[in-house]
Amino acid sequence: MTRKLNDALRRLPVWALWLAGLVPLSLLVWDIFAGGLGIDPVRDIEHRLGRTALYFLIASLAVTPLLRITGISLMRFRRALGLLCFTYAGLHVLAWLSMDMGFLWAQMGRDIVKRPYLLFGMGAFVMLAALALTSNNLSIRRLGGAGWRRLHRLVYVAAPLVTLHWIWALKTFPVTPGFWLLVILTLLGLRLAIPRPLRRARPMRA
């Protein structure tokens, strides 16, 4: 069963994931022009981009635990998931710079260093940028497998920061980002709890 699924996944081209991954963006662009956004479209654009980035981030974090627990391999798609996350994160930041802040650079600079939710968000964004920039075969060769893996462990700092960024931006403690923070911590926990090589591949000991 797992084998069949993995065979099918192997036949799925990575560009198909990219195509599917850009559907939320197309829907957003459609809503902007069709007037499908709410009373404050700026907020809706920002929030939808940010939320989509987080979903791709979580999907990319789930790849390894999924493989270790179920044997289903989405490893071929992990880079695309990460880069899709960064695409949405970049657009989210761009929407903030332009539509929300109206390019008030001085205020943005002051706010980032002073406001926890912006510091969390920007910190996570810089880390994700470093990961996106090194998400290519050349960087893996240059950094070496171990070095590259060490660098990419940053995602476990960036991901909780993203949810803190969301939580701190609101007035009361919100349920949704709290839930995603829990999911991220669980995924991190699973990686620590289920070490490589895959336990399931080993014969059961009596």
Partner: peptide, 10 residues
């Protein structure tokens, strides 16, 4: 947690 120097008119 956030600046009050400017505002966005809905």
């Amino acid at each position: 947690r956030w600046s009050q120097g400017t505002e966005r008119r809905i």
